[in-house]
């Protein structure tokens, strides 16, 4: 990591100022660790764990409550999906139908939820002119219903 930082700093000396100045909103700066704030000559934000803290803070700052709820659901789906996959690898996939149905249900639900999230986030308003948030939710319900009908049929 350190090597990478050094390399980065060595390579881009001039744009440092601009990179610094575009670093987002003041409330975030305090969260960066001392190593950086102590080095005023240091250039662009290093790609360490700090960046992820930065991302996290940005996330907390910009995401409304409803969307966070969706994200929790997404996280849950990922966990379920991983569990299913791990079980399939360890425990064998004997009723392959059943595994596949369960796994597809998880994946399908995941992508449908992501779609719902994309359609309802304000940043994407321009993209989805034909889809109001209510319409998006109706789409989501329709898609999920279809998905689960197929899954139930497939699971035997």
């Amino acid at each position: 990591m350190a090597r990478k930082t050094a390399a980065a700093s060595g390579k881009t000396a001039t744009p440092s100022g601009s990179a610094r100045s575009t670093t987002p909103t003041p409330p975030i700066i305090p969260t960066t660790t001392n190593t950086i704030s102590k080095k005023p000559s240091s250039t662009a934000p290093p790609l360490t764990g700090n960046t992820f803290v930065l991302v996290w803070n940005q996330y907390l700052a910009t995401t409304p409550q409803r969307i966070r709820l969706l994200d929790v659901f997404l996280g849950f789906l990922i966990v379920v999906g991983v569990l299913q996959f791990v079980y399939c690898v360890i425990g064998g996939n004997y009723p392959f139908n059943a595994f596949l149905a369960g796994f597809s249900a998880t994946v399908g639900q995941f992508v449908l939820t992501v779609a719902l999230r994309m359609q309802t986030v304000n940043a994407n308003r321009k993209e989805f002119e034909g889809v109001s948030p209510e319409r998006a939710f109706a789409d989501f319900v329709f898609g999920s219903l279809l998905l689960h009908v197929f899954c139930v049929n497939f699971i035997n």
Binding site: L100, A101, V111, L112, M118, F128, G143, L146, L147, C151
Partner: peptide, 22 residues
């Protein structure tokens, strides 16, 4: 790439693949 592409493709693929396996 746009969120529209994601929505369209993923909803088609997830449902369509599962359906085709019936």
């Amino acid at each position: 790439f746009s969120p529209r592409l994601y929505t369209a493709y993923c909803s088609w693929y997830a449902l369509g693949t599962l359906a085709s396996m019936q």
